[in-house]
Design a protein around this nucleic acid. Structure first.
Lengths: 201, 201, 201, 201
DNA sequence: CATGAATGAGGGTTCATTCAT
DNA sequence: GATGAATGAACCCTCATTCAT
């Protein structure tokens, strides 16, 4: 009736959506994306199947939204990092560490890769994921640039270096799938040092 | 007793098996591993569903065999490379190039990652894939070692360096999924140079 | 060419048929009729699937033949028993004992019941089995009659008594399915005594 | 929260479950347990295949439930009979009559036997059926005991006598499979008289 | 809005039977 | 005769989605 009710309803809706997405991500992280059904997500969110379809058009949209949220959050995070005080190496080191930690971000990375690899996800999802991935390279590239200006980072196109850096990290993340871990330790300092400037004799 | 040419039958069987595996790989490469059904594979191979089960115990076994074949072949390839004449840098360069080329090996890499990521593949498959992956790191590590002896490759545990090198390449491969390609060029020479020795001043 | 070869061929064929039937019965006895495939029978007989269809028109015919053989053999056995020397009670006792023993005859009984119960067996099989079953009651009925003449067996239509006797035994056999045995001991002497004459006061 | 009438839903669910079980039993009675598919049961119940799996976890569970219901109902029936007024012979007579009538109980008996014989039913089902069968012997045994106290029933372990009595009835039931009936009339009075006391001279 | 029963296409798998060799 | 590869219909079961309540 009153505008306040409408507003409150919208807030309520937003909260529900976030709750569903959180529950879904949690479930997917534990059980894998392929074997998670709408039923499972609904159960995890403590809601009915029907409600899922009030908030999302399809299962695909849920996955899509999880990815969008995750990548957007990561984008903010890495952008924040890039404009911080500190050396480029420190920033790359932090990025490495936070990625190699097997926390939430890890589940996101796996999910992102799965989404891009899987034909279960639509062409549209795959394109959007890739686009955001590419955009998220920019802050890393600017860190590389900063490092080059300071003489700490190897020469070359900063975006290309960022591309290698992120691909390396993501490649490593893949090797750490629970239940199929490669028994080799990855160390952030070693990784960063690969990108260190090579002084000319 | 047996009026059939047993030897020829065995050859025929082997040929059929290879044909199925090839068809399956091709189909998976195009359509993705998750949504490829036995039906699809049978159609691609030009055979009936029932025939699939003459040659393989289950769909899982087909996937499993594709992976085994691919990883074994790659293992031979990289081992051969490691014992060749030539500088370590050349060898890494060749490895890069052959990987970044979007040929068959690319489809294998995707398949391997998907298999490791997907909960559709059984625990057993994931473990076997990871084990072979780890074993295949050894020849690369020996190339790293050779390079270090020659003063061309950066210091550090050779196996760890190999781990980074391969992860980097594989990470890049992921970014090149058809239909979702990151619009950045990866260049083998740049990648190899990350692993180049850093002369001390 | 020569008549002797034809004759020998026929003998060979008969031997093969018996071999198949024996192997099939053995397999069925162990694994149950429902889960035994032509493939299994062929393997047990050490022959090829194709050969099965040289000797039998269908799987149904194999089952059918096993039943026919088994019931015919049993018919001979019980007829022999009925014309032997000895008291009616002794004969019934022997019949009981041989039936309650968990030997080959037990597997036949189960098979017969399964065939009669199962819709997997055709109407035709079921009718044939029932007809042979009914015929095989006659020798038992004649034993009952003998017992009545001697004053040892209860009054009543001998065929009806035989029907009860055999049904009782068969009912008991069912209760002794391996893996689902009723934990009560059946004793031949008690069973026979149910059919003992009831002296009038 | 829930705009639906929860209580009515639960009632509806119960009704549906019973409807499915009834339809399934009917279908099985006509077509046999082995060749009844989920499809058949769904068709008989006028529902979709998917719905079956809303109400039951598996085909096995449907069979299991039919058996449980049937045996439990029978257990109540026979227990009620055993504590009624009347002579033991009357009670056995009634039991015989109700069993030999080719009504619903007949289908249950066949189903029970088939379940115990068939390897299609799981080990678990077979065990449960047998256990309930054994328990259901007790009321019959107590009738036997009553008869012995009154001097109307033959001597011997009451449970063993009950075992024979029930096995006899069940054996007879088997001989009356529609389409394969043994052409001999079974009469309740004759059967009961087999268990009558045998006066000592 | 909330609910969960209903749907049915599609998944992997089995197996009796046929037939070219 | 002997063989076993090939077939394809049928099995049980899953699950994204719809819709009456």
């Amino acid at each position: 009736m009153s505008p306040r009710n409408v507003e409150r309803d919208l807030l309520q809706r937003e909260k529900r959506i976030n709750h569903i997405l959180d529950s879904a991500l949690e479930t997917i992280a534990v059980r894998g994306i392929g074997s998670v059904s709408i039923n499972d997500i609904a159960a995890a969110a403590g809601m009915s199947i029907g409600s899922m379809y009030h908030y999302f058009k399809s299962k695909n949209e849920i996955i899509s939204e999880i990815l969008r949220r995750g990548q957007t959050d990561y984008g903010k995070h890495v952008t924040g990092l890039s404009v911080q005080q500190g050396s480029a190496q420190d920033k790359l080191f932090q990025l490495c560490e936070s990625w190699l930690a097997l926390d939430n971000s890890w589940a996101y990375t796996i999910l992102i890769h799965t989404a891009r690899l899987s034909d279960a996800s639509s062409e549209e999802i795959r394109r959007a994921v890739t686009e955001r991935f590419t955009n998220n390279l920019c802050p890393v590239a600017s860190v590389m640039e900063q490092g080059q200006r300071d003489g700490h980072i190897v020469n070359g196109d900063p975006l290309e270096l960022a591309y290698y850096f992120v691909s390396l990290i993501q490649g490593l993340t893949l090797q750490r799938m629970p239940g199929a871990e490669v028994p080799i330790q990855a160390r952030a300092s070693s990784i960063v040092s690969l990108f260190a400037a090579k002084p000319q004799l």
